[in-house]
Amino acid sequence: MLAEGTYDAGAVADYRAQIEAQVAAWDQLYAELSTDSTPGVDVLEAFEPTYFAALLQSLELRFVHRLRAKEGKDGNALNEVRLLAESFISNDGRLLADKQIKLDPERSVLGLNPGDDVVLRRDDFMRLVWAFFLEIETRYTQS
């Protein structure tokens, strides 16, 4: 597949809605288990990083063919998601370093250093998603 230089704004909105629906399903399950006196919420909290790691990978796959020249190499949220997804796939969930991308922990969404274990919780994921979509909409969609 050729690299994508633009994305249709409607498609981006659809992708965002899909991600939001998956997070809403998580929130609903969490709320239901929290009201019970069952150990289910503990199990769910233990599963949380796995769920959101998979969701992050699905986010990256929706835009995996984005044109890298437009993405830039300044450590933005697009770079961060790309590195995180690759870290889950090929580095046992430890953040990979990339000499071409200037991912500064002080300016990144999650504040991770190369080699750090990535434990992605719901709130971290949401901050990353909002930053990611802002970059996609700014760099890749046409008004």
Rank of each mutant, 00 (worst) to 15 (best):
L120M: 14
V109S: 02
V41N: 05
E137Y: 04
I19P: 00
V129R: 10
Y30W: 05
R122Y: 01
A24F: 02
L96F: 04
A17V: 03
A21H: 14
V23R: 02
R66M: 10
D124R: 13
A25D: 15
Q100D: 13
G10P: 01
A17K: 15
F47N: 13
G111V: 02
D27S: 07
E60C: 09
L2G: 11
I89H: 14
R16L: 04
D104K: 14
Y51I: 03
G111L: 08
E80W: 06
V129W: 01
K99C: 00
K99S: 10
L67C: 11
P105F: 10
S58A: 09
A9Q: 12
N79R: 09
G5I: 03
A21E: 14
N76Y: 07
A31F: 02
R127M: 12
Q142T: 09
R121M: 09
K70R: 15
M1L: 07
A21V: 04
T138R: 15
L29H: 08
K70E: 06
L56E: 07
V119E: 06
Q57M: 10
V43G: 12
L84F: 13
E71C: 12
Y15V: 10
L67V: 06
E4P: 07
G10D: 12
V41L: 11
G93N: 10
T38L: 08
D104F: 09
